[in-house]
Amino acid sequence: MRREEIFETVREILAEVLNRPVEITPETRFEKDLEVDSLRAMEILAAVEDRFDITVPINVLNEIRTVGDLVKEIEKLMEGDHGHL
């Protein structure tokens, strides 16, 4: 899957979970710009895992602040290039 496709799928997931259309760029910050709280973050994570058939380690969650961070993490996990994975 190309980065643009991942980005588009993430946009769809955010719109579904936040229940509103969202304008995002790779620089959009989850907490500051989209006002995603920890509960919504869990829902977004679950949807991302199901849609991409990956499992995201919670260790990396603190590092994911922007949409771009998430897209990169999804790319890594889909390639199976995550540490020991």
């Binding site: 679950a46 895992e49 199901d50 058939d53 499992t55 380690p57 919670i58 260790n59 020991h84 994975l85």
Partner: peptide, 25 residues
């Protein structure tokens, strides 16, 4: 260590995660 979590008391979600993690590792 790498930590993954499944939804509270959700056996289906646990199996989904076990399956994915086992396939890759």
């Amino acid at each position: 260590v790498p930590v993954y979590r499944f939804r509270h008391n959700d056996v289906e979600d646990l199996e989904k995660k076990l399956r994915r993690l086992r396939e890759k590792n």
